[in-house]
Design a protein around this nucleic acid. Structure first.
Lengths: 218, 218, 218, 218
DNA sequence: GATGAATGAGGATTCATTCAT
DNA sequence: TATGAATGAATCCTCATTCAT
């Protein structure tokens, strides 16, 4: 079994590393959530993780790399654990129901991972998106585009893209409000997000019934 | 002439002070817009204004105070120069038209004062709003609330508040997209913002025609 | 002269600054001499100068800038206070005498400013000269070239350059030995430097007497 | 077979160890050459060698030890492979020829082992020579002393030492210039080094012909 | 012997803010 | 008022070295 040993040794070694990485990402999530991405410091993350700054830099070359990895894991978990929220929808499903289910899942996801919001609002200067912000954003917009395409296969790509951006924007705006409230008020905001999205999207689906549908570029 | 002197000295001083303040606020607007609020440094603002750091602190106790004052002036200008955008609407005006006009005015305002966006997205941590962010936000939400109230005088305050927050959120989300694009694409996004807001608000006005209207808290 | 082109107005304010700059350069000279350029830290320089790190950075953007300024001042002082050491030589002067006088002056200068040596041996990687090293070096080589040209006006530039580099190299090598010893031994090394340079240069002057002179590129 | 095993185990271990050491020293040579001794990091050396930092420290207690061992091996190789360059010279050989041959060999050696230069210019602070620098330096000076003694057996030791230091210094200064150039220019510098050394040493040999010879301490 | 995680002091540099002039 | 020097804690990041496995 020396073969086995040789194979497992690195694994074990990496095991500790993997644990540290997870630990550091958890700490980063906490700090990003608490202070925001820009104001977060790598030392604070290391402190939160209970390790020295040097240890952090053994696994991540800089702050952005942490955010990117964190974003990547969020997207991955979203796909695996919340995949249905973004799965193509049965065209027979009423829009209200589909939107409601999707929003519920997303809200649940974002409440479990509040860092998502902090990452989406990275060092925000409109037009100058940084990588990790972009990565997350692009990934999400991509999924929404896919969803919309599955419903409106004949719509022009440019329109789909725009609509997806708007949908994501409306959702994020609503999410901010949802996260800023609690209890019944939070629930009320969740309902508002669903309402806003449903109303925004409803007319687009018109063509399925012979109605005009998506506003197109002139 | 001592009387004269006493009167004129303060005036001159205030005049110079006002000029300095305006100069500093202009510089701050530039820096906030360029680097974002969090990353902006007071030294950079002073440099941009062509004065020394000490001078800056003669007029503002700290960085946040600059943002607050800047936000205040933005709100003030909005009221005076763009007041109609937030003025109570003639109930007879079609919603689409009213929203379209308001959005056009706001977009124009925000393009002339891009710092508005930077201030609204200050050190953004949901739930932990800082003063100046809050001030701007509260002011704007207040105006939107007023507008909605003028249209729906019977709606519960809580619902009005919620709707106003949503409206502002949707607008800001759209604004980010508008600012991130140019030319025809920008125009397309402006249209989308109008569409989204119109669709979101349209059903609320139903009671004026006997339709259900605002979703209310259960 | 170290100042940029823009500022001519503030004069007196800079008085304190000038003092600080001198103080910082003195401290830098001490630290560079003690630890060498590469190992010297800006914090150590600030500490040696009795100021905070921030103060140092008010006057110098980074470590290299300190070295460059220091080098510039050294060259300047060399020109003004030790100018004769590099002044064109009366062709009638016996070489031995001329070299002896020049070396004596240089040694005196370098003993008064031991940092000169540290700067000349900056972050030494042959081929990869850094700016401040280069600046000092180039300045000195230029002077030696001038000296040689004044003696051998007909020699090809390439040969003059090469000879100047060698002369400077031999001098610096000797200087290291001189600085590493004291008393009589130091004096003996000074004599050796003179001897080495005289012997190296003597044949070059042959053409003045009809002898072959400088070895030329084939 | 236990006997055999006992014998072979150490051998293998030593063999492996030697391989590791050679590997590490090669890596160190590369890094020292690239970044200079002071700026070189043990982690970088380990990385270059493809091993972990821990492994490096299993063979060397610290960075300086690596330099010392590297210097030792260089000296050793110089003795074995380039020994003739430092072998006592047949007094009948013309100086020019002897110096030319020696310089050629040394230059060849230094071009094959560019780390030599980096080590000789270690954390250079005149007067405060560190061990490994000293070791290399002392070894080389010793050999040059031997050479000179073989030619001038009656010269005082102090004079021999001084001359040897000067010879080494001139050579190192020339080497720097040689390494900093390429092609024809490099060749020209090689010629200059030979010239400088020949001219410096030539008068010393005078006593062999009844001429004064070495300048002595008064 | 080998690994790679861990350390923590120290590196350069910045920044909000204060103070003497 | 205005200046610009001064601060010192905090920033990101590196490095020689050690330690558990």
């Amino acid at each position: 079994m020396p073969d086995n040993e040789q194979k497992e040794q690195p694994r074990r070694r990496q095991a500790r590393g993997e644990r540290r990485i997870a630990q550091l990402l958890d700490a980063a999530a906490t700090v990003f959530t608490t202070t925001g991405y820009t104001a977060a410091s790598t030392n604070a993350i290391a402190r939160e993780a209970g390790v020295s700054p040097g240890t952090l830099y053994q696994f991540f070359p800089n702050k952005e790399a942490i955010a990117i990895e964190l974003g990547g894991r969020l997207v991955h978990e979203m796909q695996t654990a919340y995949g249905e929220a973004l799965a193509p929808v049965d065209p027979a499903t009423p829009l209200e129901e589909a939107v409601g289910a999707a929003v519920d899942r997303f809200i649940a996801f974002n409440c479990r991972h509040p860092v998502f919001f902090a990452l989406m609002h990275g060092p925000d200067i409109p037009g100058r998106l940084t990588e990790e912000h972009d990565a997350l954003h692009v990934a999400l917009v991509g999924r929404v585009e896919g969803l919309l395409s599955s419903i409106l296969p004949e719509a022009p790509v440019a329109d789909i893209k725009r609509t997806a951006q708007m949908v994501l924007g409306i959702y994020m705006a609503g999410l901010e409000l949802v996260l800023a409230h609690e209890g019944a008020e939070r629930d009320a905001y969740i309902r508002e997000v669903k309402t806003a999205l449903t109303r925004y999207l409803d007319p687009l689906l018109g063509d399925r019934l012979g109605r005009p549908g998506l506003t197109t570029t002139p």
